[in-house]
Amino acid sequence: MSMLHDFAVWLAHSPLNAAVTARGWIVPEVQIVHVVAIAAVVIAAALINLRALGVMDTGRTRQAVLAAWYPVMLGAVAVLALTGFLLIASEPGRALFRTVFWVKLGLILVALVVTGAQARAADGGPSRLLAVVSLLLWITVIWAGRWIAYAEGWPGAFS
């Protein structure tokens, strides 16, 4: 907690914070890039998992769809990590001190592993279960992200 506090104080006084708060339009525009990248993750997750469920693109194998779209998902998550870091830098006292933010980070890791695990799952039962879990996880990630704006911060948190 105190390390996190020190990090937030350092970030609040960093040139990065000065840069992203220099103009009022920067944070909204970074958020827009963040939302567009979320759309890329969602569409990749939808294509991979709906194929695994056998309801879409059945002309191609599950593995082919995964091979085409999992890299897109990883690339979009990289963009999300970068834009997300910029958003944290703009207001270090916000996300870092809310439980729902750390829940979100954990869910992203689990969702990436579950989606990627489709490559090794056999056709049918296991892959269908993974597909449903993966879709639910990504929706929960979006919920957690939006909820950072509504959740209470930890008591005594840096601001």
Binding site: A39, I43, A46, I139, I142, W147, Y150
Partner: peptide, 25 residues
């Protein structure tokens, strides 16, 4: 409500990523 707006907003974000993602593709 303190949570209803946020809940509907989450639905809107999920929906817009599906619309925008599929149209952009």
């Amino acid at each position: 409500s303190t949570w209803l707006f946020g809940a509907v907003e989450v639905g809107h974000v999920v929906a817009l990523t599906l619309v925008f993602g599929s149209i952009a593709l």
